[in-house]
Nucleic acid binder design. Structure first.
Lengths: 342, 342
DNA sequence: GGGAAATTTCAAAGCGCTTTGACAACCAAC
DNA sequence: GTTGGTTGTCAAAGCGCTTTGAAATTTCCC
């Protein structure tokens, strides 16, 4: 069933039917009723491709999903998607997800943009000096960046959390508890959030004249295995750290396993603060020793970005171009005073 | 840049350029080279919406993502998506994800199908007597069902794991270890896999003249909280079960917390077998007591379904219509002989 | 050199929708 | 009875691509 058939059925022109459906005022209410009734009976749905071709609007948000055979799927991605979905469902928007090798994201994003399949782009997994920024600017399509790109002028629309502030605050807390030997378990070094978190730690330490040893930093994929490995390394250091900052509760999961296996007690021998993206599976309060965390909901960020993107596409009022969300620092049992010097 | 402009630039007709790009034989190799070169220089990409309108092919797979504000996002979904992605990226396919309230999936699926946005559908979260099956049959669009629909004639294309067999085998193992008091921690009762798993347990028990008490069954969302709650209930039963079958490692996570909190030892006081979807975050071997599991990779299933769907759309050879994957039963430390009767 | 066959290119139609600009039809007002 | 303003409807153009059927060009063989 298409417009032509429907309009013939009704003895109306395509124009009138189209207008009736799209809420234009210049159509008789009685006629509109008839049309709506016929739509109900026939189950007619406009062909999206045609609609898109005619209007240029697609009703969809595009994003790139990094994936590759063997590439471990990322829990954070799923959670973020849930946030996008939660908002999109309210506006009858959907997503187009372009899977892409993680090293090919620029090209994938460009393909997606010029495919005409989407009205707006969402971009994540930002890197330092990210090449996608200039690319996006050259496109004339709305986009919102989740995160920022360290080293690029922040003159693009983004939503980020205050990564530096979060880790600065977390470090300060540990300093106040008397810790002096720190380690940072971070995400991959090229990613923006990792850079900023590291800076936060370093600047808090610097205020006390402390530095972060190269040995006491790990940059790795945010999986529990990597957390385990990194912590094992830290624990074998001659003068092992007592305070650990951890970029994700996923890493913390492995890290804590290592702590337990070494026969140490979390919150006593080792204090640990992790960043909590509010993943449904990893509630910090459910850990055997509840985790002190910096918290910011990834899902909420997803929903907000969807809101901004959809709003922009629908031209529903102006949105702030740049948002920086504060994180909460929530103290639980995994942090305690530094153990007495032996 | 569109086809018209490009062809003018080259001094060729749109037809020739289009043919050159789509690999038709009736175009001079030299001409094709020129066209390809120009494409490279101009960065021309065909407008997908137009292509779709003209060909009816979209190069995309559609799926419905259940979501709602407050609806906990499902790790399993993300993992499955990763599998789809892994395969799709190889064929330059992408997905269209339609978020939908979990109670509105039939309608969402129908909208997606007739939107003209997708070539094929993937359908999951199957229920008993699922109304989507007849709907899909009436559509003339390829689809593959992940799972099956208990109560419907299995005459539709699906990929499922042998849920009944898996839980039958797992139950048998526990029976052989001498257990007589069983409990089943299952997913929501209306879902197909939950029905089949329950049947597997019941029929294995029946062979020994045992039954599964209503008290010893829980049907709930597969979250760790629910696992915790269910296990707490089981442990308070007057004659508490010693053998637990668990539909997901996510549930097991909570269940084990409850076991620990009760001061019981997993693998001694309580034996537990969980179904393992091979989620990146929940490796059964990483649990403090490694988990005995029935295993089947969700991601692999996703990849396979993508393969079948894409193959069908591209008409690349026939695929089996129905696949039933066996699960592996992997014995680790969470199962042991039944404790002596007190 | 002429005619048939093969090769290469083209103009135009069509995919299903929206939107522009024009046109009836009706009523009110002068 | 003309003008003027609504109101409701329509035919036709256009979005950017593919594909059909025909035309132009080249190649081949006798």
């Amino acid at each position: 069933m298409n417009l032509k058939q429907l309009s013939q059925l009704l003895g109306l022109s395509q124009t009138t039917v189209s207008r009736a459906l799209n809420g234009y005022p210049e159509v008789n209410e009685a006629t509109r009723e008839r049309v709506l009734q016929a739509v109900k009976e026939t189950g007619y749905r406009p062909n999206k491709a045609a609609q898109r071709l005619a209007t240029g609007k697609a009703g969809s948000i595009g994003l790139v999903m990094p994936t590759a055979p063997g590439h471990q799927s990322d829990v954070h991605f799923g959670e973020f998607l849930a946030g996008l979905g939660e908002e999109s469902v309210r506006h009858d928007f959907h997503f187009v997800i372009m899977p892409s090798d993680p090293d090919d994201e620029v090209a994938a994003l460009r393909r997606l943009a010029i495919s005409g399949n989407v009205d707006a782009l969402f971009v994540a997994y930002m890197r330092g000096h990210d090449p996608r920024i200039p690319m996006l600017k050259s496109l004339s399509m709305p986009y919102v960046v989740h995160g920022r790109s360290f080293g690029s002028e922040p003159d693009y629309p983004f939503l980020d959390i205050d990564n530096e502030g979060a880790f600065y605050d977390a470090t300060r807390l540990l300093l106040q508890l008397g810790h002096t030997r720190f380690a940072l378990m971070n995400g991959p070094m090229h990613l923006d959030f990792a850079i900023r978190r590291k800076n936060g730690v370093i600047s808090a330490l610097a205020e006390r004249g402390l530095t972060l040893d190269e040995d006491c930093m790990s940059h790795a994929l945010m999986t529990d295995e990597q957390g385990l490995l990194a912590m094992e390394r830290f624990l074998q250091l001659p003068n092992r750290p007592t305070a650990i900052l951890c970029s994700s509760t996923v890493l913390a999961l492995g890290a804590i396993r290592a702590v337990n296996q070494a026969g140490l007690r979390l919150g006593e021998d080792i204090s640990l603060i992790a960043h909590d993206d509010v993943l449904p599976l990893l509630k910090p309060e459910s850990f055997s020793v509840p985790l002190t965390t910096t918290r910011s909901s990834l899902r909420a960020a997803g929903a907000r970005i969807a809101q901004r993107l959809i709003g922009t596409v629908k031209q529903a009022g102006p949105f702030p171009d740049q948002e920086l969300w504060k994180t909460e620092l929530i103290v639980r049992a995994s942090t305690g005073p530094a153990p007495q010097q032996l």
